[in-house]
Design a protein around this nucleic acid. Structure first.
Lengths: 252, 252
DNA sequence: CCAAAAGTGTTCGCAATACACCCATGT
DNA sequence: ACATGGGTGTATTGCGAACACTTTTGG
């Protein structure tokens, strides 16, 4: 075992290695066992609308309600690793297809009626999926649901997951402007239209296609063109260039 | 489907990765007790330089090293409340003088050699303090130290607190641009020069005083003038207007 | 008078917006 | 020919940077 001292804890026992007379800080008498979980807000854009992956609970509390996927942090793993593992276990999505970013932690004493749980929420972004990822082998029903339904109170969530989703979406909207995460909603090769529809779905606005084109192509290091095109749709139109994320191969 | 080359799933692993028959992660057998703490990154600007409040540890591990103030979350309190309580206990600063914002959570299995601890870091901002806040009754030595010394490796910190400080400062620098938190570094009434020096200290730049004046006065809801002035210094100069944060009294 | 600090005006360049226009395809 | 969507050109506007300038004080 890699981290031996971490496993020695049994619930409720103060750690024997800390005989410290510190009243305010690490006094072991103040030690209280918590359960620590990670919850995943997996987001994707399907059909021009932002979706979040939810799991229908099969047991109380909140039986039948929809909730975020997640689970306990294991004794020997980092928070980030726990989030990556849970994502893989519950959706089959590995780290190469999604990058996790921490949203925040939630620890209201009564957020879980069974015990004291602090959860660390992670946001994950994946390219549009044709299939709904399945849960990890149990009967749990996993589905991509519209964020608008959650935020419009048409789809109540278990625990404080509504608030977590709100925070994740807020963060996403802000990051979309300042970072280059938008292309994570797209497959490896994508058209500028697809990229624009990601912004439009998340910001709930319409963007001028011409200006978007310029903005996104001029911003260097953001996307690079391939020499491939996409045939137009049924109703015609000029073929669109396919682009990839990031710098051109030998550049900068 | 419109763009049939949506082959994004082709690289995907078979989703049969179902090592555990765990119902959505809440299998009680997976429960592992953790200690949960809060750490406070209390920041202030003194003498045109950004400082962080540190406490010198009196016991192992990291005896003698500087660390962030913090402590255990109690069984019946929210994370935010725990942070506010710790701040009050260790510095005497109440919630009316500072607002806490969550920075992130840190849970490396070996971040604390004594036991498995997950900490939730909070940032706090206070107006310039003439005195160093004192610790909460024990012999712990508390002092405001330059952030530059921490980030320049001249002042190593205990645990992973260096990284927490880095994250808090990054967040602060970003929030300074997008939110109105800057005036929290100032007393209730302040001059525009004081406000500018906050930005300059945190961003480590020099700002044009004239442009700053306009920007900050034109942005509505940000600051409002009082009818009071501040006498100039020894070397003369025009008296500066005193301003307060926020909207004028009866406005909007 | 000069120095110093507060505060205003003026100009320039860039970047976002609006929107006209051209390009390449399907029917 | 016409519709449709990809992509470019162009005029306008607003904002930030640079910096000259005015105002109000102390010496």
């Amino acid at each position: 075992m890699k981290y031996p001292r971490a496993v020695a804890l049994s619930s409720g026992e103060p750690p024997d290695t800390t005989p410290e007379p510190r009243p305010e800080g690490y006094n072991p008498s103040a030690f209280v066992p918590f359960a620590v979980t990670v919850d995943i807000v997996l987001m994707t854009v399907v059909e021009r609308s932002l979706k979040v992956l939810l799991i229908q609970r099969g047991h109380p509390p909140y039986e039948g309600a929809w909730a975020l996927p997640g689970g306990f942090v294991q004794p020997d793993e980092d928070l980030d690793s726990a989030a990556a593992r849970e994502l893989l276990e519950e959706t089959g999505i590995g780290h190469e297809r999604s990058r996790l970013l921490q949203i925040g932690s939630y620890g209201d004493p009564d957020r879980d009626p069974r015990m004291r749980v602090v959860t660390v929420a992670y946001g994950a972004i994946v390219a549009r999926l044709s299939d709904v990822p399945r849960g990890g082998g149990d009967a749990a029903h996993a589905e991509l649901m519209p964020v608008a339904d959650v935020q419009g109170d048409r789809l109540p969530l278990a625990f404080d997951h509504r608030r977590i989703v709100d925070d994740a979406v807020d963060r996403l909207r802000a990051d979309l402007e300042t970072t280059s995460i938008a292309h994570r909603f797209c497959p490896p090769e994508f058209t500028i239209r697809e990229l624009r529809e990601v912004y439009e779905a998340i910001w709930q606005t319409e963007l001028d296609s011409g200006n978007f084109q310029r903005k996104v192509t001029q911003r260097k290091g953001f996307i690079t063109p391939t020499d491939r095109r996409v045939p137009p749709g049924d109703k015609g139109g000029r073929p669109a260039t396919l682009w990839t994320a990031g710098e051109p191969e030998g550049a900068e």
